[in-house]
Design a protein around this nucleic acid. Structure first.
Length: 853
RNA sequence: GCCGGAGUGGCGGAAUGGCAGACGCGGCGGACUCAAAAUCCGUUGAUGGCAACAUCGUGUGGGUUCAACUCCCACCUCCGGCACCA
């Protein structure tokens, strides 16, 4: 009854069985441990490509293996359905974003089903469905209540191509839009923000808990949050004659120990005091020129990598609170308005940028922190005790920013200087006592700009009332429905849709205007994983007890491109929802796998580049199982891989090999005598060949199990191939009538079971049809190996002489060391004859090494 | 510039400090076949040798060790992230 492996026939057959039986529906079962396996949900861009296949195959293997290991598994899927590409496609193809989006979802859903992914389809989430996005609005309102939503006028990143603002996290490398790579512009606009900075410290601290995350992702997030410790110092504004005003300017510094070395003071070009200082003065023109160049040329200069430092004197001075020194105030292009306070104290001897600026404009560079071996101290040892300003210009050709000793620093002279030094602490204490400074912490992280001037997004549930101001939409009026009757092929937004924005104020009833900006799509992806735990809930985003059962996600799988963006925002949402009382966890994702990218000839596959390899090109010829297994076999999951069609044949051959092996076994098995008493049980009178097979089978089961656990699927598949080879070798070497039924059967069944998560269709067919078992392979228990059978009772050890293998010995496992020593010496007798054995090292069960002279 | 990651056969890739190259792709030789496909067997790091074998070999140069792809120091190349963050 031998029959052929025909994936085109069996794959759709099993897919429809699984779907109609809803075999992959997640069940909350308190009796079993749970596992929530999640892959980052796709954007419905059209046909999936091999990158998708890889991402979702990894998750599917983990989910299927987890079920067989006895876990109650949640493995859902959905679509991140709002966003710009839908609008662009709609304009280009003269259709509606909704139509384009839902059609693409249908395409991807069909493709995913054709690949045999084991999703709980009943929990499907589509973010552009009102049933989903209303809860995004609900969360917005909750955040609004808690003061985590802010509308403010700020310089923001504007993408002229996308015609919308962007969050800081969405501006890449050289200041370009993450989506279209257009250079972004700075604009001063009134926008909506989520106050993620309120959680900056916790987002940083809790990275320590995430030991299931790749180190580099944690490092990237820590760098992005960018905590720095230092001090604020208040400088009093004065005129050229030293007459002080009651105006102070505060600076932030990480080096309060260098305060005595401040020889000038800088304002950012955008600083509001600049025009106040120079308007109508002789300095106005020069300052305006700097401001002009800084605001218009910065982007270009940054691109070249080296920005020339330019600045201009404002005619004003400030008083240094530590020593009452009067220093000039300049405007400089390298001072950033959006970090610290937009003003800095310049210490050219201790800061490279200030040094360059001082040299360019002839400003003094007094040394205040010097290294112990500094030539300055060598030439003038008394300088080490100098408290007053004696040397006003360093002989160095670069700033010194390292640790050292404070000099020329009044009462602080002699203290250690440097970041976080005793000297720095002492200066902060002195400033604090005088009320002119204080210790403080600064973050690089900015608040999350969430409003977008685009149509295809979740409407911000707010109404602008001329009398009441900003009025949140009452919760019982949610959702604010995104109207679909808008012709967006002209590029129109909600601001061109009066039926949408003309509303009555919910408080006073006056004519008011509904907010027409929509939310950043990343707000949807920041909590979709929570919706899966309770996807049909129509009274809340999710029930707390359901989330409590399933959360956190045990294994999250997705691309490294979200190392900051999505993964940071999701952590933020989780903490906010915890504080609202909906969650009891601090972190959403316990373990994270950042899967490598699938490339073609070195380039990332993307629709815009047109270098996509789609699974449909391979499935008709080889089937989904081959595609899945091949992409898992090509490389470890976290490494980038270059797609090459050459090896697909090999994987197809392998699955055929498995098919024939199992098929032949099914035909012949009645002829196998039952020799050993039970599968996997060690029976002393087995033949040497059968013992050998039992050993190989158990060793392979252990190896494949361990490798799937640590998600090294490429080596797991290699172990399955070795198991397959061992079974074939046994068949070749041992006639049917001498074969051990129990050991062989255990080998065959283990092979089929362990291959099942990777190649779910062929294994289902082999299990149920070819082997004639009842019940799905995917509901079987994972094979258990016998640790005693994974090792041999005799081991062959290489014997090295001076680092070269010169002989081999076979000894009992864990043999007495004396026995091993003697056997080794005998084995290499010829090589060591007449020489002194200086050393003999036995590494038990591994190697013997002899050193002779 | 700073912070990560990676350099291993023709190719993808394996190796708790213990026989480098598992597993596979490709190649070569053979069996089966009228022939081909499929399948099966053998072989396949380099150099030298008829051969057993010898020597060399994990980006480069040092070091630690009986033993280094693995640990340490210095450097080269590539990839990724951040980048005037005071």
């Amino acid at each position: 009854m031998a029959h052929e492996y025909n994936p085109a026939e069996i794959e759709p057959k099993w897919q429809s069985v699984w779907e109609s039986d809803a075999v992959d529906a997640a069940v909350e079962d308190p009796a079993r441990p749970k596992r929530y396996i999640l892959e980052m949900f796709p954007y419905p861009s059209g046909n999936p490509h091999m990158g998708h296949v890889r991402n979702y195959s990894i998750g599917d293997v983990v989910a299927r293996a987890s079920r067989m290991r006895g876990y109650s598994v949640l493995h859902p899927i959905g679509w991140d359905a709002f966003g710009m590409p839908a609008e662009n496609a709609a304009i280009k193809q003269n259709t509606h974003p909704a139509k384009w989006t839902y059609e693409n979802i249908a395409t991807q859903e069909a493709a995913f089903k054709r690949l045999g992914f084991s999703y709980d389809w009943q929990r499907k989430v589509v973010t552009c469905d009102p049933e989903f996005y209303r809860w995004g609005q609900w969360i917005f309102l909750k955040m609004f209540e808690r003061g985590l939503v802010e509308r403010k006028m700020n310089p923001v990143n504007w993408c002229p191509t996308c015609r919308t603002v962007l969050a800081n996290e969405q501006v890449e490398g050289e200041g370009v839009c993450w989506r279209c790579s257009t250079r972004v512009e700075k604009r001063e606009l009134d926008q909506w923000y989520f106050k993620i900075t309120d959680y900056a410290q916790e987002l940083l601290d809790d990275l320590d808990q995430l030991d299931g995350w790749p180190e580099r992702v944690r490092t990237m997030q820590a760098n992005w949050i960018g905590r720095s410790e230092g001090a604020e110092v208040d400088f009093t504004v004065c005129d050229a004659d030293g007459n002080t005003t009651d105006e102070t300017i505060t600076v932030y510094t990480t080096r309060p120990d260098t305060l005595f070395g401040c020889s000038f003071f800088l304002l950012a070009p955008e600083h509001p005091l600049v025009s106040q200082f120079v308007d109508g003065t002789e300095y106005a023109d020069a300052v305006a020129a700097v401001v002009e160049r800084a605001t218009h040329e910065t982007a270009v200069e940054r691109e070249s990598g080296i920005a020339e430092k330019i600045g201009a004197f404002t005619g004003r001075y400030v008083v240094n609170p530590i020593n009452q020194q009067r220093v000039p105030v300049w405007v400089a292009n390298y001072v950033l308005m959006d970090y610290g306070t937009g003003a800095v104290m310049a210490v050219p001897s201790g800061d490279e940028r200030d040094f360059a600026f001082a040299r360019a404009y002839g400003l003094p560079i007094p040394p205040v922190v010097v290294a112990a071996d500094d030539p300055l101290l060598a030439s003038d040892p008394t300088l080490a005790q100098e408290t007053d300003l004696r040397v006003t210009d360093v002989p160095w050709d670069a700033a010194y920013a390292g640790p050292g000793t404070m000099i020329q620093s009044g009462p602080f002279t002699g203290l250690s200087g440097g970041k976080g030094s005793a000297g720095a602490d002492a200066v902060i204490r002195a400033l604090a006592a005088a009320g002119t400074g204080r210790a403080t912490v600064n973050f690089r992280l900015r608040d999350w700009l969430i409003s977008r001037q685009r149509y295809w997004g979740n409407p911000i549930p707010v109404i602008h009332c001329p009398k009441c101001g900003i009025v949140p939409v009452p919760a019982d009026q949610l959702p604010v429905i995104l109207p679909l009757d808008l012709d967006i092929t002209t590029g129109a937004t909600l601001a061109e849709h009066p039926e949408f924005y003309e509303v009555a104020c919910p408080v006073c009833g006056a004519d008011a205007r509904r907010e027409t900006d929509t939310m950043d799509t990343f707000t949807c992806s920041s909590w979709y994983f929570l919706r899966y735990t309770d996807a049909a809930n129509d009274t809340a985003p999710f029930a707390a007890d359901k989330a409590a059962y399933w959360m956190p996600v045990d294994q999250y799988i997705g691309g490294i491109e979200h190392a900051i963006l999505h993964l940071l925002y999701s952590r933020f949402f989780t903490k906010v929802l915890r504080d609202i009382g909906l969650l009891s966890i601090d972190e959403p994702f316990t373990r994270l796998l950042t899967q490598g990218m699938v490339k073609l000839d070195g380039a990332v596959m993307s629709k815009s580049k047109g270098n996509i390899v789609a699974p449909e090109e391979v499935i008709p010829r080889y089937g989904a199982d081959t595609v899945r297994a091949y992409i898992m076999f090509m490389a470890p999951p976290d490494k980038d891989l270059d797609w090459s069609p050459e090896g697909v044949d090999g994987m197809y051959r392998y699955l055929n090999r498995v098919w024939r092996l199992v098929d032949e076994y099914a035909d012949e098995r009645d002829g196998y005598p039952q020799v050993s008493d039970q599968a996997g049980e060690y029976v002393p009178d087995l033949s040497a060949q059968t013992k050998n097979l039992a050993h190989l089978v158990h060793k392979s089961v252990k190896k494949a199990t361990d490798d799937i656990d640590r998600m090294q699927f490429n080596t797991a598949i290699a172990a399955l191939m070795e198991l397959t080879n061992a079974l074939y070798d046994y068949k070749t070497a041992v006639p049917v009538g001498d074969r051990d039924r129990a050991v062989f059967q255990f080998g065959i069944e283990s092979l089929v079971k362990m291959l099942a998560p990777i190649a779910p269709h062929i294994t289902e067919e082999l299990w149920q049809v070819v082997l004639g078992n009842t019940g799905s392979i995917h509901a079987q228990e994972w094979p258990r190996y016998d640790a005693a059978l994974c090792v041999r009772d005799e081991v062959e050890l290489p014997v090295q002489v001076n680092g070269k293998v010169r002989g081999r010995i076979t000894v009992a496992r864990d043999a007495d060391e004396a026995v091993v020593r003697q056997a080794a010496l005998d084995a290499v007798q010829a090589q060591i004859a007449g020489k002194d054995v200086a050393k003999l090292i036995v590494v038990p069960n591994r190697i013997v090494t002899i050193v002779v002279k």
